[in-house]
Simulated scan of single mutants.
Amino acid sequence: MPELPDVEGFREVLNSCARGRRVLRVEVRDTGVLRGVSATRLQREVEGRRLGRPRRHGKLLVAPVDDGPALVWHFGMTGALLCTRTDDPLHAHDRIVFALDGEQQLRYRDQRKLQGVRLAATPGAVEQILAGLGPDALGIERQEFVALLARRRGTVKSVLMDQSAIAGLGNLLSDEILWRARVAPERPARDLGEGEARRVFTAMRRVLAASVRAACVPPRRTWLTGHRDDEPACPRCGADLRSRRVAGRRTVWCPHCQH
């Protein structure tokens, strides 16, 4: 599933491929990825206009369009943005194609179509869409983060994954962060000591910094992500990893390292 680093990568794709370019044509190849907007309205509002500087908040990506409206992407499980040339073959899962001046295309590709694209008519409508999200995981300050954990019910992993608490973290990032911080995912968030909460914050910042550079959560051999599927051994201590569902998602952790 795309998480904050993936969406930051899509922001870079959008910025380099489409920012400042005029949209010549919008081809909606599958209306199943449209959310709250028809294909006809999307074409009417976007064709002939230029795309502005994109911004990301959590897992959402916003691209303003001339004169007020904005495209808002939620990538769900399998969504992605790609920059192609007009003569590149179409992929079976290319759902929307934005033909741009300069013989380039911006393509929204999505296999499972669990989320998709919205059109916000005004800047206020954009803010309304973002209103239910917590602070972005890259922007939250340490003191705010520690206070947030102290007042939230539920396990620390469920809080990290709750987009209304902190926006941008998903399953892989949360497991990696807690493994780095040596905190068990099922610990109640508000039971963490201040030192433990600070360790989680520091781990989050470091994991995000490396992941944003890679535009994904990298499956490195020194990371938990490099061992969670093929080698069930902790890359730090060699103990057997454990796996079960926490916060509704498959969770991997080291019972020897994480307490």
Rank of each mutant, 00 (worst) to 15 (best):
L4E: 02
L4N: 06
A18I: 00
R21Y: 07
L24T: 06
R25L: 10
E27V: 06
V33K: 10
V33F: 05
L34D: 08
L34V: 04
R35H: 04
R35S: 09
G36H: 04
S38W: 06
Q43C: 15
E45N: 08
E47H: 09
G48N: 05
R49N: 13
G52Q: 04
P54L: 09
P54Y: 08
R55V: 04
G58Y: 05
L60H: 13
A63M: 12
V65N: 12
P69A: 11
W73A: 15
T78P: 02
L81Y: 08
T86V: 14
D88Y: 03
D88A: 15
A92W: 08
D101K: 00
D101E: 15
E103Y: 11
E103P: 01
L106R: 07
L106Y: 11
R107Y: 10
Q111E: 11
R112F: 13
K113M: 13
Q115E: 15
G116Y: 07
G116V: 05
L119G: 10
A121H: 03
G124W: 03
Q128H: 14
Q128Y: 10
A131G: 02
L133V: 02
G134W: 06
G134D: 01
A137R: 05
G139N: 12
E141R: 15
E141A: 12
E141F: 00
V146D: 07
L149E: 08
L149Y: 03
R153Y: 03
R153E: 13
R153S: 14
T155G: 10
K157W: 04
M161E: 09
D162T: 01
L169T: 01
L173N: 09
L173P: 05
I177M: 04
W179I: 00
R180L: 05
A184F: 03
R187V: 14
P188K: 02
P188M: 02
T202A: 15
T202E: 12
M204H: 00
R205Y: 05
V207H: 07
V207T: 11
V217F: 11
R220P: 01
R220Q: 14
L224K: 06
L224Y: 04
D230H: 13
D230C: 02
E231A: 09
E231Y: 11
P232R: 14
R236G: 06
G238V: 03
A239C: 03
L241E: 05
R242H: 15
R249D: 01
T251A: 10
V252M: 03
W253P: 11
H256Q: 15
H259A: 14
